[in-house]
Amino acid sequence: MEVRTIKVFTTVDNINLHTQVVDMSMTYGQQFGPTYLDGADVTKIKPHNSHEGKTFYVLPNDDTLRVEAFEYYHTTDPSFLGRYMSALNHTKKWKYPQVNGLTSIKWADNNCYLATALLTLQQIELKFNPPALQDAYYRARAGEAANFCALILAYCNKTVGELGDVRETMSYLFQHANLDSCKRVLNVVCKTCGQQQTTLKGVEAVMYMGTLSYEQFKKGVQIPCTCGKQATKYLVQQESPFVMMSAPPAQYELKHGTFTCASEYTGNYQCGHYKHITSKETLYCIDGALLTKSSEYKGPITDVFYKENSYTTTIK
């Protein structure tokens, strides 16, 4: 009895394709271990004539594949690729409408935090270190965002349907971005203890939790000093293409032309909904596939993004 075979390709990165001759009487799992086709788990399936010449994702289970996976995804987590594939199996079914010149995501599976993050990423200057993220990001900007969303979920250790947080998501993504040249110098002034300067680099240099107003941050924000008295913390120097200011959701007025974009969060910790506000020729609110415009805006804002380049204080 002759062994019926077909020729397929296996890959971990969709760049390096490895030619395989597979036995049609055995499952993919018996031949390769966990195997995925377009995100779908085909591990328990036997090869079919229609699979001839198709590319299958496999887990990096030998040295060659491990090197290829690390170079593309910059992670050695053995569960990463499987999590990416199972997320992709959902995100490829989502709709990605162009809204006001940006790629958004039609609401499904509690994905409003991903839509808000995706919209924000198209408006701030950011370059990702893992080629996987950078490639998928370019495709997302062009309207094909399924891979990018699935990668975000995998890097953030999230599953489809789980509630997510924009600030946490951005923080994970910033860790995989090139923020080497970003720098922030802060000064804390206390009447009792004097003053202390701190220099922050990388992710810490672009994120701040405690106030939404970048102007206020430049002037000074009140913080408790270690001595128990009130101290003032203010920005001395900022070198970065953008800054992200966050605070627990509270009524906040966004003035046209003073910011790049913002995240609105309605609801409580267990259950809520994100919308995205962007400042173009007027203010726009993007909620999944829905767009509304207004000249002014007041609502429960939790993150505001500002364009920056270089700032030095005039406070002496």
Rank of each mutant, 00 (worst) to 15 (best):
Q122K: 02
V236I: 09
V188H: 15
K201C: 06
S86M: 14
N16K: 09
K275T: 14
H256I: 15
F9P: 00
L153Q: 03
F128G: 03
D303L: 04
C112H: 08
K93T: 15
K92W: 04
L254K: 05
K183S: 10
Q20G: 09
T199L: 08
V160N: 01
Y297M: 04
E162N: 05
L200C: 15
K275A: 04
T55N: 06
M245W: 01
D77H: 06
G29W: 06
Q98T: 13
L88S: 01
S246V: 02
T292W: 08
S246E: 10
L283F: 12
K233P: 02
T199G: 06
T103G: 03
C156G: 06
Y113I: 02
T64L: 13
R83G: 01
N309S: 12
Y274I: 04
S310W: 10
Y284N: 08
P34I: 12
N268H: 10
N147H: 11
G267D: 13
G39H: 09
M244N: 07
P300S: 13
G202A: 05
D135M: 09
Y57L: 12
Y73C: 02
K229M: 12
G82N: 15
H176Q: 10
A154S: 07
V236E: 06
Y172M: 08
G288T: 03
E52S: 11
Y208Q: 14
D77G: 02
A150I: 01
E296A: 14
C156S: 08
D77W: 00
N100D: 09
T91F: 03
I286V: 15
F242V: 06
G82I: 12
H273Y: 06
S295C: 13
G39T: 11
L102K: 05
N110Y: 05
L235V: 10
T198K: 13
K46E: 15
L81M: 13
T10W: 06
M170D: 00
S279Y: 03
R4A: 11
S310D: 14
K92F: 00
V42H: 14
D13R: 03
V236T: 08
P78Y: 07
K219Q: 13
F259D: 06
D13G: 02
V243K: 06
A87L: 07
S79E: 14
L291S: 11
V206H: 03
F70Q: 11
V304Y: 03
S246Q: 02
E253P: 09
N14D: 07
W107A: 14
I223S: 14
C112Y: 04
H74V: 01
T169Q: 01
A146C: 06
C261P: 00
R184E: 09
T169N: 00
T199S: 09
S50Q: 15
T192E: 15
A231P: 04
N157L: 00
M170I: 06
K7L: 10
Q175K: 15
K158C: 01
R4V: 11
F217A: 08
H256K: 15
G194Q: 07
G257V: 00
E68C: 07
A108C: 08
K316L: 11
R66Y: 10
G267I: 07
N129R: 13
K218L: 05
C285Q: 09
S86C: 15
E125H: 10
G220P: 09
T211V: 09
K54E: 15
A205W: 01
K219F: 06
Y138C: 15
R184L: 12
I6M: 15
R141H: 06
Y57Q: 07
C227N: 03
L186V: 13
V304T: 05
G143R: 01
C225A: 03
S86A: 13
T232G: 04
L173I: 08
T312R: 12
K183D: 05
S294T: 14
T211S: 06
A205D: 03
G161M: 02
C225V: 02
F56N: 01
G143D: 00
Q216E: 13
M24P: 12
K44G: 15
L114I: 08
Q216L: 08
M209E: 13
P241Y: 01
H90F: 14
E239Y: 09
Y84G: 00
Q122G: 02
R66V: 07
K298N: 08
R66T: 12
M170R: 00
G101Y: 04
S181A: 08
Y36H: 05
G210M: 05
T55C: 10
Y155M: 00
L212H: 05
F80M: 02
L133H: 00
P249C: 11
Q20R: 14
T258G: 08
K316Y: 10
S279C: 08
T314E: 15
L126H: 02
T76R: 13
I277W: 14
S294W: 13
T192A: 11
M207D: 03
D41W: 02
A150D: 00
L153I: 13
K46Y: 14
Y28H: 02
K233T: 10
V8C: 09
G299S: 08
S263T: 10
D165M: 11
T226V: 15
L235P: 05
C112K: 05
S79I: 06
C285E: 12
F305A: 07
C261I: 05
R139T: 08
E239V: 11
H51E: 08
H51Q: 08
G161C: 03
L212C: 12
W107L: 15
V12F: 08
L163M: 15
K229W: 03
T211A: 13
T43G: 13
V12P: 09
A40T: 15
M1I: 09
V166Q: 02
L17V: 10
V21S: 10
T260H: 10
